[in-house]
Amino acid sequence: MNKRIFLDPLFKNNPVSVLALGICSALAVTVKMEPALVMALSVTLVTGFSGFILSLLRNTIPDRIRIIVQLIVIATLVILVDLILKAFAYPISKQLSVFVGLIITNCIIMGRIEAFALHNKPFPSLVDGIANGLGYGIILVAVSFFRELFGSGTLMGYPLIPEKWYVAGGGFYENNGLFILPPMALIVVGLIVWVFNARNAKNDKKAWNK
């Protein structure tokens, strides 16, 4: 049971590519891999712990004011993440700028709380939150992988394309500047969605034929 809760959101029910949740605040941080990884980690922590806390509170919150209680819990966790980043990883926190704050309105978090944590025990809620955060992280890291590789020719800041391949060094290669611009993030995500959907359709067909 717990294994399924953990594995489903990674591929089959991936929150970003299949359910279209939580794209809002994310794509702007995928120019480089390093901030994308930090962002993925922060979102994973916030989804996990907000699910855990709200699942503990689930029987005491009146239904009418649950949205505002959820927002307060999420916002408190995000403030913690923000302060930790500012203290221990200041350059990355500057790069992420407003997007750390925007984790509050990330639809994955609210969506998982509404759909899962309010009806389940704390531990499964924690697992579900972390798995959904990781499913989001996979897409984020994949997008930033392609954008950094083709846009800047580096990965995690290390140059991957040899110096003499570049036109400046007498070679033939040049970085594709389009990948650094925002629209390319959307196109890369569109292509990833295509791959995911095609794979899922194939799996469904296989299951059908059995």
Binding site: A20, L186, G190, W194
Partner: peptide, 23 residues
């Protein structure tokens, strides 16, 4: 549209193209 692209996939790609136009 190719079946796996329908809905979400094509909406992303079109938004990307519109973004390039807005640039």
């Amino acid at each position: 549209i190719p079946a796996p692209m329908r809905g979400l996939g094509i909406a992303f790609i079109i938004t990307g193209l519109m973004g390039i136009a807005f640039m």
